[in-house]
Design a protein around this nucleic acid. Structure first.
Lengths: 190, 190
DNA sequence: CAAAAAAGTTACCATAGGGTAATAAAGCAT
DNA sequence: ATGCTTTATTACCCTATGGTAACTTTTTTG
């Protein structure tokens, strides 16, 4: 599958934009490859890019005491960014890291602005932003209404491939617990 | 202060739109009054409105075990909605409640769509959505990197009026703890 | 204003999850 | 492959927070 088809397919569940839009989108991007554990966006720097993950996996992290904890995980065909830095133009605490060998489309802020000036482009970003918010709110509800063990079992059911591909260290911090606690949960039954 | 000035002033920190836009915005809204504890949007219903809080305070809740826990709190001059239901058109678990006597501007989905068709309107909603996402992410970082006690002290510092105006029951659940735990924290020193 | 309801406090014990540390297992590099 | 580094497991004890329950204070409402 070529890149514009991949973009279209990833976005279609939310809004079906014609393939020409995605050709235009892709034409404004750079294609970048990252090795496992390579830093895509360093903590306490500014970043003026949005990204689309073609292959691999990526995590958003912030520092807590003595390690990075994971705010969100992305698998291929997802949009991701350090939205706070991208919006404000200022440095943010977030670090973004490739968790597997990954290929990524990178779109600069100025090209984002260009895209937003077309009606269809504006629509895409609006829907993307709304969706990001909705996902974050769902994540909050999971956090506030379920135990770590319930969140683990939920994740196991809904995205089992994450458990195969991402190290438990990251999954544990994503679930809001230590690797020891995750081990304890996994031991019970699996 | 009249309504359009109030709208403009609330939004200006993010993007300075001309007052005419806000007149147009206000003209598409209904003004509604709620009593303390009145339900603005009931859990497990759909809601096709966005809201702007002129006076009072409002909370977003979801059910957990035997009570409603608070996902977010709003004071006057904030936009709020059940975004998930508003986006999807479908029922959602969220309940929205006036926590004090409140006055609210209510904007229907169809009028939101109308506004979004103007370039300036599209801009406003885009910025609003981005901002909502950024706030939610900040809230997540607070949750994942700080203890309940730290979150309480932080809230005390950043929005002390909340502690005066909102019942501890709601503040406790907003902080992710029980009222007993909040009492214990408050006892320490205050 | 008085009675009733709701909210807040305190104490008790229970439990999920954290911190340290030792060990085992897996992944990576020469 | 062989060692070196990182990750995962397990055990130990510790702490923050939860649940129940009794009591007090505040708020609501007839």
């Amino acid at each position: 599958m070529n890149i514009e088809e991949q973009l279209k397919k990833a976005f279609d569940p939310y809004f079906e934009a014609p393939i020409e839009i995605w050709k235009h989108f892709a034409s404004l991007c750079e294609l970048i490859y990252y090795k496992k554990n390579e830093i895509i966006k360093e903590a306490h720097r500014a970043d003026r890019y949005g990204y689309f993950l073609l292959e691999g996996s990526v995590g958003q992290f912030v520092w807590k005491e003595n390690n990075f904890i994971c705010l969100d995980l992305f698998l291929e065909n997802s949009f991701f960014a350090d939205d706070i830095s991208l919006m404000s133009g200022k440095p943010s605490a977030m670090q973004i890291v490739a968790l597997e060998k990954s290929s990524v489309l990178r779109l600069s802020r100025s090209n984002i602005e260009k895209l937003k000036q077309t009606p269809m482009g504006a629509m895409l970003f609006m829907i993307g932003d709304q969706n990001a918010y909705a996902e974050k709110q769902k994540q909050q509800i999971e956090f506030m209404t379920k135990t770590a063990e319930e969140r683990y079992r939920e994740l196991m059911k809904s995205k089992p491939e994450i458990l195969q591909r991402i190290s438990q260290k990251h999954i544990a911090s994503y679930l809001g617990i230590t690797t020891q606690s995750l081990s304890r949960i996994r031991r019970k039954k699996d």
